[in-house]
């Protein structure tokens, strides 16, 4: 088991192997994303029963919750890639970490926008300083900081290493930020209607789970596509990239 993981780690550490393998994996991942998201969304939009409190507006949840979960997960993944960059100096991890940030940021943005749109019929205002929305906003700011730092440094390797330090510091801070925002929220306003009711009917929960898994597949697809571009750019002087480009 451990030997297999170690072998995979070294194989995927090579940009060429990564490019070839992900090229073969991509159709399957796309199929997984489509086969999970489309049924999940159709079920959630058309077949799940309306919520007895919120009516039909709760159907925004089928994007909002997966986007929130991805935005968090992507940051943690970026920090893990950062550890690999700093400890083992793996070039592939640099490219993956660089590709994660814009995708994670766009999911955080999506979560905020859908949250605001959901808030209008639920709370009567577009924005409420609700604990979850506020910590998502700060997560988006963290992503923006990481992206700004990455763009400001010209040398690709030092950009990757500086970004790795920042994303690890950010990942250590995320739980602290989350708990302080929650504490701040309970201090400043009485408990508001939470967006997702804790006890959800099964007919609502299953499409949500489909969407969450589907979004993870979508994330894998987006990340692989972005990383493959990064490989072409960084490895354009190598022979295999030249042959690859010349052959088609």
């Amino acid at each position: 088991m451990f030997a297999t993981i170690k072998r995979l780690y070294h194989q995927f550490g090579s940009p060429r192997y990564f490019y070839d393998m992900t090229g073969k994996m991509l159709p399957w991942l796309i199929a997984g994303a489509v086969l999970l998201i489309i049924p999940g969304i159709v079920w959630g939009l058309a077949f799940a029963p309306p919520d007895y409190l919120q009516g039909n507006s709760y159907r925004i949840m089928y994007i909002h919750v997966p986007a929130a979960s991805l935005a968090m997960g992507a940051y943690v993944m970026m920090a893990v890639a950062g550890v690999v960059v700093l400890v083992w100096r793996m070039k592939m991890a640099e490219m993956v970490a660089r590709s994660i940030a814009p995708i994670g940021a766009s999911f955080a943005f999506l979560c905020l926008i859908t949250g605001a749109i959901w808030g209008k019929p639920t709370w009567g205002t577009w924005w409420v300083w609700d604990a979850r929305l506020t910590s998502m906003l700060i997560l988006l700011f963290l992503y923006i900081g990481v992206m700004a730092l990455n763009m400001a440094i010209e040398n690709a390797q030092s950009a990757a290493r500086a970004t790795a330090v920042l994303s690890i510091v950010g990942a250590v801070n995320i739980p602290i930020i989350k708990y302080s925002v929650e504490w701040w929220n309970t201090l400043h306003q009485p408990a508001s209607i939470s967006m997702t009711s804790s006890s959800m009917a099964t007919e609502m929960l299953i499409p949500l789970l489909l969407c969450i898994f589907g979004f993870y597949f979508l994330f894998a697809v987006l990340l692989i596509m972005a990383t493959r571009c990064e490989i072409l750019q960084r490895e354009q002087r190598s022979n295999w990239v030249r042959q690859l480009v010349e052959n088609n």
């Binding site: 700060i138 963290l142 900081g145 730092l149 440094i153 330090v165 920042l166 510091v169 930020i177 302080s180």
Partner: peptide, 27 residues
Amino acid sequence: ALTVGLRKGGVLVAIIALPLYVPVLIF
């Protein structure tokens, strides 16, 4: 420390550091 080698450090430091200030500000 992360931006000391860059010419346009000032605003970048703010963008990097401000979100991390949040817990201290709150408490």
